[in-house]
């Protein structure tokens, strides 16, 4: 007798019952993640409005006053400092969300509060767990970015009618960085400070050396490579193209998109692979 006839009524019932999860499983994970995020909705909204307000005031109004006074109303790149810095701050907001959502919550899911293990015992497949997490972060990122962009418009910091595409550019930047960090975090068996190092030695330098507060070209060439590999720089430049029509060759714009998409594909696939290895061994 074969142990897997696959023809009994039991088997038929199982196949019917598994259909929905096979198809929609990732979204069920997203539902779960959003419900978890709901426990910190306050933080998301306050940070979503508060941090752009702080940055736009401090840099776009405060620092801009000095920059514009010294260099004229078309201070940097032919626009005011506020208009120059705002799209970069938008992209940085996406990176911030990514560095929150793709680090500790991943460690939590695998180890500290192993909801990933729980999900893997249900019809959900490991790759769907990864996908579901990414979808939920996309939703949270969009909430933050839309709030941020609305404030940019209020501050008069987004002159172009297609400036809202900066939201998409920032989303790509956040995911490019986030999925790679998720892959890295997934490989950790234990957090002995690695995640804090990511914050200190990757996120912070990246935000300083990615043409955020001043153009990358200000740096000597031997420092500019930090910008070139930084998803934040690519996302920022892209957001500037949309926000105030920053002039760069079209091929470079395409490179920004291609680079960010490539990182997303690599980071996402890496995370999926490790999920299968960790949850289905």
């Amino acid at each position: 007798m074969n142990v897997t006839t696959g023809q009994s009524t039991d088997a038929a019932r199982a196949i019917a019952a598994g259909r929905r999860s096979r198809r929609w499983g990732a979204w069920y994970v997203t539902e779960h993640r959003l419900r978890m995020m709901r426990t910190y909705t306050g933080t998301v909204v306050i940070a979503g409005i508060g941090s752009p307000l702080l940055y736009l005031y401090a840099l776009g109004v405060g620092l801009a006053t000095i920059v514009d006074a010294n260099m004229g109303p078309d201070a940097v790149d032919g626009v005011s400092y506020l208009v120059f810095v705002a799209p970069a701050l938008l992209a940085t907001a996406a990176i911030t969300v990514a560095s929150e959502e793709f680090t500790y919550p991943i460690m939590l899911g695998y180890k500290w509060n192993p909801t990933f293990t729980g999900a893997a015992a249900s019809p959900i497949r490991p790759v769907q767990i990864v996908d579901g997490v990414v979808y939920s972060v996309i939703i949270r990122m969009l909430v933050n970015l839309v709030l941020f962009y609305a404030l940019m418009v209020l501050f008069g910091a987004a002159p172009s009618p297609v400036g809202f595409l900066g939201i998409v550019a920032s989303l790509l930047g956040g995911l490019a960085f986030g999925t790679v960090i998720m892959g890295y975090t997934s490989t950790l068996q234990e957090d002995t400070g690695q995640l804090a190092m990511v914050q200190r030695f990757i996120v912070l330098p990246m935000s300083l050396f990615s043409g955020t507060f001043f153009p990358l070209a200000v740096f000597p060439i031997y420092l500019q490579w930090i910008g070139w590999i930084s998803p934040l720089w690519h996302a920022t430049e892209l957001a500037r193209v949309f926000s105030y029509g920053y002039a760069e060759p079209i091929w470079l714009t395409l490179v920004h998109v291609a680079y960010l998409v490539a990182l997303i594909v690599i980071g996402w696939a890496w995370s999926r692979r490790i999920a299968v290895r960790r949850l289905n061994s």
Binding site: D10, A11, A14, I15, G18, P123, R125
Partner: peptide, 13 residues
């Protein structure tokens, strides 16, 4: 009656 290598999600359901 199903092989877990092939029908994991279905079995787990």
């Amino acid at each position: 009656g199903l092989d877990p290598d092939v029908h994991g999600p279905e079995i787990r359901s």
